[in-house]
């Protein structure tokens, strides 16, 4: 892979449009986000500052980068960003675009699918056993109809279906 990059102003402008209300261009690369990031601390070369910079340079690789999904949306970066860039939100938008482009790791699709089907983000058999032991009712089923409606409106359902195909 060549080390040489080009700045793609058209892609950059699209990205800025994508981010919408957030002043992502105000980012002056101070690194507060990465310094505050729990994921960056434990996950090798995950670096939210660099992700935002690559997006601002118009690099298409940003959306294919699986490391994006390490963001746990804890919002510490948004809390601390001196320029109100709100990196969590920016990353969320990048993730959504990645979804639209179908460039998402399989595990993430599986997770989406589980939520659409069960309403839960993880399947837990042990939870019911535990609940029974302490005299609680088993977990009631979740109305996935509403979730699926939301997913349909936001386009998530179509994308997961497509991905499965």
């Amino acid at each position: 892979m060549s080390m040489v990059e080009k700045i793609d102003f058209a892609a950059r402008n699209e990205f800025i449009k994508l981010i919408g209300g957030h002043d992502v261009t105000k980012c002056f690369q101070c690194g507060t986000c990465t310094a505050s990031c729990v994921a960056a601390r434990f996950a090798g070369n995950y670096n939210p500052r660099m992700t935002i910079l690559r997006a601002l340079r118009g690099s298409p690789k940003v959306f294919e980068d699986e490391r994006l999904w390490l963001c746990g949306s804890c919002h510490k970066c948004s809390e601390r960003c001196p320029e109100n860039v709100e990196p969590t939100e920016v990353l969320m938008q990048i993730k959504e675009e990645a979804f639209r482009r179908g460039a998402v790791p399989k595990a993430i699709y599986d997770k989406g699918d589980l939520i659409l089907k069960t309403g839960w983000s993880l399947e837990s058999a042990s939870a019911d056993i535990l609940r029974r032991r302490v005299g609680l009712q088993p977990l009631s089923a979740i109305n996935t109809e509403d979730i699926n409606k939301i997913a349909k409106i936001t386009g998530l359902a179509i994308q997961t279906a497509e991905a499965e195909r």
């Binding site: 990059e5 080009k6 910079l53 340079r57």
Partner: peptide, 9 residues
Amino acid sequence: MTGGIIEQE
């Protein structure tokens, strides 16, 4: 900031 080389027209 990225370590890459930029060739900008």
